[in-house]
Simulated assay, not measured.
Amino acid sequence: MSHFQYRVSHINLPRLYASSNAGMSNTHLANRQAFFRHRIIPRQLVDTNLRDTTTEIFGHRVSAPIGFAPIGINKIYHPSGEIAVAKVAGELNLPYCLSTAGSSPIEKVGKANGKGPRFYQLYMPHDDELTLSLLNRAWDSGFDALILTTDTWQLGWRHDDVANSNYAFYRGIGADLGLTDPVFQKRCREAGIDVEKDKVAASTKWIDSVWHGRAWSWEKIPWLIEQWKKISGGRPFVIKGIQSVADAKKCVEYGVDGIVVSNHAGRQVDGAIASLDALENIASAVGDKIYIMFDSGVRGGSDVAKALSLGARFVFVGRLWIWGLSIMGEEEVRHVMKSLLADFDILMAVGGINKVDEFDKSVLESYPKSYSMIPEKVL
């Protein structure tokens, strides 16, 4: 392991990359504050001895309405990377989402996940042939829903990352998903880059081939939906990063199967709307027309309950398990997620909720939006 890898994996994380936010972290702060203004109203004398935390997502019956959000370059947190996380997700029967920024090959991650439900999160390359190669690899490896992330074609301004030059790909670390792609390997050969001998050059080309320099528009969505449906035989297509009612309505108009209401945990647009507030707006507008999922700011079982009550049908978590991965690898990912499941299950037990679909606005008392401008640290 290089000095850089050791430094990032064992000293600076989770303080740095996993915990970095856009700008002054105002969106990150707002995400947490939004949860505080909703309070759960417990119901008494409800027999919850036979409560059921399971739910269904895209045809999969899963243990709880909780999934592993897509997070890239897991190997900077622990050498086992995505392999360990996918394994735990499969064990727990919780959906696992693999990021295009993954530091392990798609095929190995799929194998590690076993029979678990798994979805592929796409950052769409500038090269259509490369996009199709990624989609085919994902489908062939058992990833049966596609999640297009639209809010990160360019990284937000994150002070910690800039100050510490904390961009692993430019150091030749963590781009294994891309470097193992046959189309990308062909592009490297065309550019005179030997993927095996010059990982820095190859990794730099990978990040520049996918993220930098191309903002996509709605015009590209019909093509991507058509290609994925053709490859997968009609499996779900989802857009992640939706925050406005107008964009949610666009998704309905374009025939998108689901959306993830997400502001990338406050890592992209500083001073933006809290994702939970966006969820409430969007669910009120299109909740009966499209499958709504949520992420950004979730820290415990009550947060999951609040998101479900405000209209989400499923909730993804990211930082919780990535912090665990950085501390003790597979063992800590398992501990963190089993703890979250226990937290959610006990909340249902003592809150008088027997089934996931019983969560609605009647479970909450909600107060007016009121966000402090004091620059406090909120984990």
Rank of each mutant, 00 (worst) to 15 (best):
residue 262 S to M: 01
residue 320 L to T: 11
residue 374 I to E: 15
residue 192 G to F: 07
residue 126 H to G: 15
residue 209 S to M: 12
residue 311 G to W: 09
residue 87 K to C: 02
residue 372 S to R: 04
residue 142 G to A: 07
residue 180 T to D: 15
residue 97 C to N: 12
residue 193 I to W: 06
residue 57 I to G: 00
residue 133 S to K: 06
residue 125 P to N: 09
residue 247 D to N: 02
residue 17 Y to D: 02
residue 234 G to C: 14
residue 224 L to M: 14
residue 113 N to P: 03
residue 309 S to Y: 06
residue 306 K to C: 11
residue 262 S to H: 00
residue 329 G to M: 08
residue 66 I to R: 05
residue 135 L to T: 04
residue 202 A to P: 07
residue 311 G to Q: 08
residue 127 D to I: 11
residue 219 E to D: 15
residue 69 A to W: 03
residue 353 I to F: 04
residue 288 D to E: 07
residue 350 V to M: 11
residue 125 P to C: 09
residue 377 K to A: 14
residue 327 I to P: 00
residue 263 N to L: 00
residue 249 K to I: 04
residue 90 G to S: 02
residue 317 V to E: 07
residue 177 L to Y: 10
residue 111 K to R: 10
residue 54 T to P: 01
residue 179 L to S: 13
residue 197 K to Y: 12
residue 30 A to H: 05
residue 113 N to T: 05
residue 208 D to T: 14
residue 58 F to C: 07
residue 87 K to Q: 04
residue 185 Q to I: 14
residue 364 L to P: 07
residue 247 D to Q: 03
residue 355 K to T: 14
residue 119 F to W: 09
residue 89 A to R: 03
residue 102 G to E: 03
residue 166 N to S: 14
residue 141 S to D: 14
residue 123 Y to T: 12
residue 17 Y to N: 05
residue 181 D to M: 08
residue 147 I to C: 08
residue 28 H to L: 02
residue 252 V to K: 00
residue 11 I to C: 04
residue 1 M to H: 08
residue 217 S to W: 11
residue 248 A to M: 04
residue 154 Q to D: 14
residue 307 A to Q: 13
residue 359 F to D: 06
residue 81 G to F: 03
residue 360 D to R: 11
residue 108 K to R: 10
residue 8 V to T: 06
residue 151 D to Q: 15
residue 321 W to P: 02
residue 339 S to M: 14
residue 57 I to M: 05
residue 283 A to E: 05
residue 286 V to Y: 02
residue 347 L to C: 10
residue 37 R to N: 02
residue 25 S to M: 00
residue 12 N to Y: 12
residue 26 N to K: 04
residue 31 N to T: 01
residue 290 I to T: 03
residue 345 D to Y: 13
residue 303 D to W: 10
residue 166 N to L: 11
residue 159 H to M: 15
residue 305 A to H: 06
residue 106 I to G: 07
residue 347 L to I: 10
residue 43 R to F: 04
residue 248 A to I: 03
residue 71 I to E: 01
residue 346 I to T: 15
residue 134 L to F: 15
residue 325 L to V: 02
residue 322 I to H: 02
residue 176 D to F: 11
residue 209 S to C: 11
residue 260 V to I: 01
residue 147 I to A: 10
residue 362 S to F: 02
residue 364 L to C: 09
residue 31 N to S: 02
residue 114 G to K: 13
residue 192 G to L: 08
residue 298 V to K: 06
residue 243 Q to H: 02
residue 372 S to P: 04
residue 104 S to D: 12
residue 260 V to K: 00
residue 6 Y to D: 08
residue 27 T to S: 13
residue 22 A to L: 03
residue 167 Y to G: 07
residue 208 D to Q: 14
residue 62 V to H: 02
residue 39 R to W: 00
residue 234 G to A: 09
